Simulated scan of single mutants.
Amino acid sequence: MHTAQRNEWAPDAGLLFLRVSGGLFLLWVHGLPKLLDFSAQLQLIEDPFHLGAHLTLSLAIFAEVLCPLLIVAGLLVRLACLPILSVLLVALLVVHLQWSVAEGQFGWLLLILFTTVFIAGPGRLALNVRLPGVLRYA
Results as ranks from 00 to 15, higher is better:
Thr3Tyr: 14
Ala4Pro: 00
Arg6Trp: 12
Asp12Pro: 01
Gly23Gln: 07
Gly23Glu: 05
Gly23Cys: 11
Leu24Glu: 05
Phe25His: 04
Leu26Arg: 05
Gly31Ala: 09
Pro33Gly: 03
Lys34Met: 12
Lys34Asp: 00
Leu35Ser: 11
Leu35Ile: 13
Phe38Thr: 08
Phe38Trp: 15
Ser39Met: 11
Ser39Gln: 15
Ala40Glu: 12
Gln41Ile: 01
Ile45Phe: 10
Glu46Gly: 09
Glu46Arg: 13
Asp47Arg: 06
Leu51Val: 04
Leu55Glu: 09
Thr56Gly: 11
Ser58Lys: 10
Leu59Met: 14
Ala60Ile: 09
Ala63His: 02
Ile71Ala: 05
Ile71Lys: 08
Leu75Asn: 01
Leu76Cys: 05
Leu79His: 01
Pro83Glu: 09
Ser86Phe: 15
Ala91Arg: 02
Leu92Lys: 04
Leu93Asp: 06
Leu93Trp: 11
Val101Phe: 15
Ala102Gln: 14
Gly104Leu: 07
Gly104Ser: 05
Leu111Ile: 00
Ile112Cys: 14
Phe114Asp: 01
Phe114Lys: 03
Thr115Trp: 14
Val117Trp: 06
Val117Ser: 07
Pro122Ile: 03
Gly123Leu: 10
Gly123His: 13
Gly123Asn: 12
Leu125Trp: 15
Ala126Lys: 06
Asn128Ser: 12
Arg130Thr: 05
Pro132Arg: 13
Gly133Asn: 11
